[in-house]
Amino acid sequence: MTAAVDPGYPEADLPGLLELEPIERDLFRANAVFDDPLALYGGQVAAQALMAAGATVPDGRLPHSLHGYYLRGGDASHPTVFRVDRDRDGRSFSARRVVAIQRGKVIFNMSASFQAAEDGADHQVEPVPSAGAPDELPPFVLPRLTSFEGRLPAQPYPGGPWPTRFWARVTLQLPKEPLWHAAALTYLSDISTGLAPLHDETYQSGATLDHAVWFHRSIRLDDWVLLDLVPHTVGGGRGWYTGSVHTREGVLGASLTQEALYRRR
């Protein structure tokens, strides 16, 4: 990551990016387009896919997990169509599959599961990583993200090309519905890479292969959240890392994992 705004990224706000046009039953289109010198940002297409899936589930059911695969590079200057398959609606859970299509080809597919609100035990084993108070830290621009601001704490892996621990929040007030905040979290979750500390002069991480998020508790993304990414292993041309998203009060809102290409430069 860099500390400067990159040119050519969306001027539309985040709600505008996440707003989908229903064009048929279980068929949606993302019409927000813009020029981008890079392939379509993976967090954007994943967040839009989650919004499409969420539009088809019974009221009161919220996402508890998603698993996505990036199949082709997308084009930010072209609309994306999302087709949703309603695999099952049970008494408590709804299962959905989504494919994102551009120019007749699938660029991304995702399975997502939604659950009706349920009371029960609530335990959190690991504490929030040490990162200081966001209001007391220097500003940090999150490249490629619209309607987000960041703060940069001390890094657990100093000297890496991109930070693996940072605060972030949406600068606009999002709609109160929790689905919007889950989608905003998904949009954020693909930024940076937990493999950055493993980069060297010969090898570095590349395109994302697959990405998963588990939503443990509903949290708001228009307040500060801490994203913390941890590398685990590289091999066979791939690298794998995990991450967590905590509120400023230390509540674990979500966990994530990602696998990406890891090859010679």
Rank of each mutant, 00 (worst) to 15 (best):
R238G: 09
L195Q: 10
W167H: 14
V170K: 04
Y241E: 08
L172C: 11
T233R: 14
G235E: 14
Y187C: 12
R169T: 10
T186M: 03
W167V: 15
E249L: 05
P178F: 04
D228K: 01
P231Y: 09
L172V: 12
L252Y: 00
P231L: 12
W224R: 13
D222M: 07
S192K: 03
Y241G: 12
D222T: 06
D210Q: 03
H211M: 05
D222V: 09
E249T: 05
A212N: 08
H216F: 02
V225H: 04
S244N: 08
S189D: 07
A168Q: 07
W180H: 13
S192D: 02
T233D: 04
L227G: 07
G237V: 09
R238Q: 10
V225T: 12
P231Q: 10
W214Y: 06
H199G: 11
V225D: 11
W180D: 11
T247N: 14
W224F: 07
T186Y: 01
S244E: 12
T208A: 14
T202D: 14
S218R: 09
P178G: 14
A196G: 08
L195P: 13
R165A: 08
R165T: 13
L252D: 05
H216A: 14
S244R: 04
A207C: 05
D200C: 12
V170N: 09
Q173T: 14
G239H: 04
L172F: 00
H232Q: 14
V170R: 05
A254P: 04
R220S: 15
L179Y: 02
S189K: 05
P163G: 06
G237A: 13
V251I: 11
S189H: 02
L221N: 13
A168V: 05
E177F: 00
L172K: 05
L227Y: 01
H216R: 10
I219W: 01
P231N: 13
D228Q: 05
D228M: 02
H181K: 10
S205N: 15
T242F: 01
V234P: 10
D223I: 07
E249F: 00
W224V: 11
A196Y: 02
L188I: 08
K176R: 14
D228T: 15
D228H: 08
L174Q: 06
V234S: 14
L174C: 06
F166M: 15
A207Q: 07
G237H: 06
S189F: 02
K176V: 12
P175F: 10
E177M: 01
A212Y: 01
Y187N: 12
F166T: 11
K176W: 01
S205R: 02
K176F: 05
Y187I: 05
P175S: 15
W167F: 09
V225N: 09
D223H: 08
Y187E: 06
W240D: 09
F166A: 15
P231F: 13
T171Y: 00
A168F: 00
